[in-house]
């Protein structure tokens, strides 16, 4: 009994979270060198296991079956997908995995909205961070799916510009709609249509942002969306008051941004030219 109350103590959980993000940082620094990369990745995965176990160490577990079902389905889908994918198809696989991460962020924000009666009984900052997470998560989910579809040649790898030169303007307007929905929610409006409108507008932004980009530039786009998902995960962490989420998400957000820059430089591109221009018509394995 003493052991049980010790491991379910919130301080013990906090310590495990610290161990976990320590392992993330150490693993990530390993990933930057050719000799240490394999070990670095495995260290980071141990960190992830520690974080998940720590999260389950609460005094009264609810919905255990649902969690097991969710993890089992996710594993059953993720493991074969990762095992069987061809080496040349790796970039689109990363896009897909990144997309589902963003989707998870958006869904969590939606549930938070529903559960708190439209953020009625929570501090304002929770509403702000949740709306941010919902917008960025939705953009990342849909943008990544389009990136996957392009690289997998489900749709043409050539730039598609439904609105021609007005593309940037349309994207800006849609983003403004999403932000306006978020602002209304933060200001105290509780209609569920607002969060749905926010998610849909952000989804359109995600689609329209990636459609005009050619296949050759996709690695830079995927890296950008990867950084986005990291930032949205960090915002979810602030909203849920969870240190592991904040640190892991923000590390990915920051390192992902820097990595995007380095990739763009290595490909003789700038990030704005990739995101705004319709370059790179040919699909190449990156």
């Amino acid at each position: 009994m003493i052991v049980a109350s010790f491991v379910t103590d919130s301080n013990f959980r906090a310590v495990l979270y610290i161990v976990s993000f320590g392992l993330f940082i150490y693993g990530l620094s390993g990933l930057t060198g050719p000799k240490t990369a394999v070990r670095g990745n495995r260290i980071a995965s141990v960190g992830m296991a520690v974080a998940i176990v720590a999260t389950l160490l609460v005094p009264h577990l609810s919905n255990v079956v649902l969690i097991i079902v969710g993890v089992a389905i996710g594993t059953a889908v993720g493991v074969p997908a990762a095992r069987q994918v061809k080496m040349t198809q790796m970039p689109q696989m990363v896009a897909l995995f990144n997309g589902v991460g963003g989707g998870a962020v958006a869904l969590i924000a939606w549930v938070e909205f529903r559960d708190s009666g439209g953020f009625a009984d929570v501090p304002t900052y929770v509403a702000i961070f949740s709306c941010f997470a919902a917008i960025v998560g939705s953009v990342s989910f849909w943008g990544s799916n389009v990136a996957f579809a392009k690289l997998q040649e489900l749709i043409t790898g050539k730039p598609i510009s439904p609105f021609g030169p007005a593309q940037a303007l349309v994207n800006g307007l849609l983003l403004a709609v999403a932000v306006a929905c978020g602002a209304a929610i933060v200001a105290g409006s509780h209609h569920e249509i607002l969060i749905i409108g926010l998610l849909v507008a952000a989804a359109l932004v995600g689609n329209l942002l990636v459609l005009p980009i050619g296949g050759a530039d996709m690695p830079v786009v995927i890296s950008t969306l990867n950084a986005f998902t990291g930032l949205s995960a960090a915002a979810t962490g602030v909203a849920l008051n969870n240190t592991a989420l904040i640190v892991a998400g923000m590390i990915v957000g920051a390192s992902g941004t820097l990595l995007t820059q380095q990739m763009a430089v290595a490909m003789n591109r700038t990030i704005p030219s990739v995101l705004l221009g319709g370059f790179g018509g040919e699909v190449t394995a990156a």
Partner: peptide
């Protein structure tokens, strides 16, 4: 670059928490 992108991608999967 690509493995690192993939590695950081896995880390933000922490949203599962």
């Amino acid at each position: 670059h690509t493995p690192l992108m993939s590695g950081t991608n896995a880390i933000h999967g922490i949203v599962v928490l």
